[in-house]
Amino acid sequence: MKRLLVLSGLALAAIVSMPALAVPSISATIDLDTVFAGNIPDGAAPWLTATFTSEQGSHSGTLTLISNTYGSDFLQGLNSKKSTIGWTFYLSQTITGIDCTSGTCADNGAAWNAGGFNSGPVPGVFNLAFGWSSGNRFESGDSVVYDLTFASALTGDPFVLNESDWLSAAHVQGIIGGCSGWIVSGTGRAQGGTPCTTTFTEVVPEPAELGMFGLGLLLTGLFVGLRRRYS
């Protein structure tokens, strides 16, 4: 009996001293580095980066959005559930809560919608979208952190390709020269983009116009000279 108690004590001590089994983590990075249509944003790709972290079995995770754009480039959009978005994703899980914890929060909308959002020319359904107002645009160097709550426990990365093989899409506006473009992340087929160029036409005066201008200067000088002489 004594020996049994000793063995039981040793077994219990071994169990207590065993390190806790690590819960597998979930970590994903989404780089928007491809122009689907429109104009090429300023700066180097990726122009936008999203990171998601969580643990398997958890009902929540942290999503961080970062703008790597340059100059006057910005994101806006999402005035209602199905209006054109600023930045959108496709999820395989239903979201029950979206809470902005820091950064440039999407004050004009942050929503999950199973029916999908209008993502402009980019095909496929996107069901998580973020939009900013004109007075609070998501600009170069900005970032924002969201806590996402899911209806079911996570078994892996919930950010997946939609039926058109896109993970994410965004509408970049304010590109230097007054242009905009749609950028994406995924393996789908993009249309491609072009640089934003602004052509300035130099107006060259005609010879007759130059002559009249010179005559005007001469008469003005003569008038000023006479006025000083007789004042």
Rank of each mutant, 00 (worst) to 15 (best):
M1F: 15
M1V: 08
R3T: 09
R3Y: 15
R3Q: 12
L4K: 12
L7V: 10
L10Q: 12
L12R: 03
A14G: 09
V16W: 11
V16F: 11
M18C: 15
L21M: 06
L21P: 06
A28G: 01
A28F: 00
T29G: 01
I30Y: 00
D33C: 06
V35I: 15
F36T: 07
I40H: 10
D42I: 02
A44C: 03
A44G: 07
P46K: 06
E55Y: 09
Q56T: 12
H59S: 11
S60K: 05
S60D: 11
S67K: 02
Y70K: 12
G71S: 14
D73G: 03
G77H: 01
L78C: 03
K81N: 07
K81P: 01
K82W: 07
S83Q: 08
I85E: 06
F89D: 00
Y90K: 04
Y90V: 06
S92D: 12
Q93I: 03
I95F: 01
I95G: 03
I98G: 01
C100G: 10
C100N: 02
C100D: 02
C100F: 03
S102D: 14
T104N: 13
A106Y: 01
D107L: 15
G109H: 03
A110V: 06
W112A: 06
G115D: 12
G115C: 07
N118E: 08
S119G: 14
P123M: 09
P123C: 10
V125K: 12
A129C: 01
F130W: 00
G131F: 00
W132M: 01
N136V: 07
S140D: 06
V145T: 15
L148Q: 09
L148P: 02
F150T: 05
A153T: 04
A153H: 05
T155V: 11
G156Q: 13
L161N: 09
E163M: 05
S164F: 01
D165P: 02
A169S: 11
Q173I: 04
I176N: 09
G177F: 10
G178Q: 12
C179A: 15
S180P: 00
G181M: 01
V184I: 13
G186R: 02
G193R: 02
P195K: 08
P195F: 15
C196G: 08
T198E: 10
T201Q: 14
P205D: 12
E206D: 14
L210M: 04
G211N: 13
G211I: 11
M212G: 02
M212P: 01
L217H: 04
L217N: 09
L222D: 04
F223M: 15
F223E: 12
V224M: 13
R228H: 12
Y230F: 14
Y230K: 15
Y230M: 10
